[in-house]
Each structure stands twice: as structure tokens, then as C-alpha cells.
């Protein structure tokens, strides 16, 4: 199993902890996909410590400047990711998760489909299937 965690902010400790603690299974491959707006994942990785606290092997990959949703879907396709997880960064007045533009674009992309689940701190796109 392969999980991609999209990192939009180094402040997303809670969502990364939720994903590693209750979504990702033991022995899974995890890719932290860093958006160009995030300069460095060091502080986040240091605080969460995926290897020691959650026993997962991970790789950090930056998305290039000027990326679009197709770049992301191509990345997920290349690594045959089973899940894409994104931290919730905004909520409505009633506390519902507000889905960011990137996630909306993934939902409407022709070449990817699956299940959409909203967790406490993260949105999880799982059971992913890819188009031709």
C-alpha cells in the first residue's frame, strides 16, 4: 500500500499525526508531497517523527513550481498510490471541513476516482483507481 500525504503547511502536525496514526497501515510506503509554498519540512518531520513514532518509511518529494493537478495525479499514478491525504486548513462556521482548491481539482480530474472520507484533521481520498 502506498499513501501520499500532501503537505500544504508545516503547521499541519495534527493532520499528519491523524493520517500516520489511524489511516496508514504498518509497512506502508509514505510519500510526503511538499507543495512549492512550503519551504522546508524539517520542523514538521522532526516533531512528528514518522519512523520512530509510527514505524513508517517515508520519502519527501517536492512538487515543482507551476505544478497543476495533473502533475499530482501523474505522481500518484506513477507510484500507484492507494491513498492521497490532505490536511484540513479551513472550516465553515458550523465546523465542517472546507475543501481547498487543490482537492476540488483532484475530485473533478478525469483520471482518478475512489472514496472520499473526511477525518478529524484530514481529508482522505482512498481506494484510488486510475484512468488509462
Amino acid at each position: 500500500m502506498t499513501t501520499i500525504i500532501i503537505i500544504k503547511s508545516v503547521e499541519h502536525h495534527a493532520s499528519v499525526r491523524e493520517i500516520l496514526g489511524s489511516v496508514v497501515d504498518d509497512g506502508e510506503r509514505v510519500y510526503f508531497l511538499r507543495l512549492p509554498t512550503v519551504r522546508c519540512l524539517g520542523p514538521l518531520i522532526q516533531e512528528v517523527n514518522p519512523m520512530i513514532n509510527y514505524g513508517v518509511d517515508y520519502t519527501i518529494t517536492p512538487l515543482p513550481e507551476g505544478y497543476d493537478v495533473s502533475t499530482l495525479v501523474e505522481f500518484a499514478t506513477e507510484f500507484d498510490a492507494n491513498r492521497i491525504c490532505i490536511g484540513i486548513s479551513d472550516r465553515t462556521l458550523t465546523g465542517k471541513a472546507r475543501i481547498d482548491d487543490l482537492t476540488q481539482s483532484i475530485l473533478l480530474h478525469d483520471d482518478i476516482s475512489g472514496d472520499f472520507v473526511v477525518g478529524e484533521h484530514a481529508i482522505i481520498l482512498e481506494e484510488l483507481e486510475y484512468g488509462d
Binding site: 465553515t92 471541513a97 475543501i99 476540488q104 475530485l107 476516482s113 472514496d115 472520499f116 472520507v117 473526511v118
Partner: peptide
């Protein structure tokens, strides 16, 4: 119903009305 249903509905509306901008999605 779910993500796949969302795509079916969005496809049908885009075919008839051109582009569709998704503003929000909530479970």
C-alpha cells in the same frame, strides 16, 4: 452519493454548460 457520483454529475453538467467550478464539498 460519493466521489464517483460527483464526477458523473459534474461531467453531465459540464457537457451541457461548459466549465463547472466546484466551490465546496462536505461529507
Amino acid at each position: 452519493r460519493d466521489w464517483n457520483h460527483l464526477k458523473e454529475v459534474a461531467d453531465a453538467i459540464e457537457t451541457e454548460h461548459g466549465s463547472l467550478e466546484l466551490l465546496g464539498t462536505t461529507q
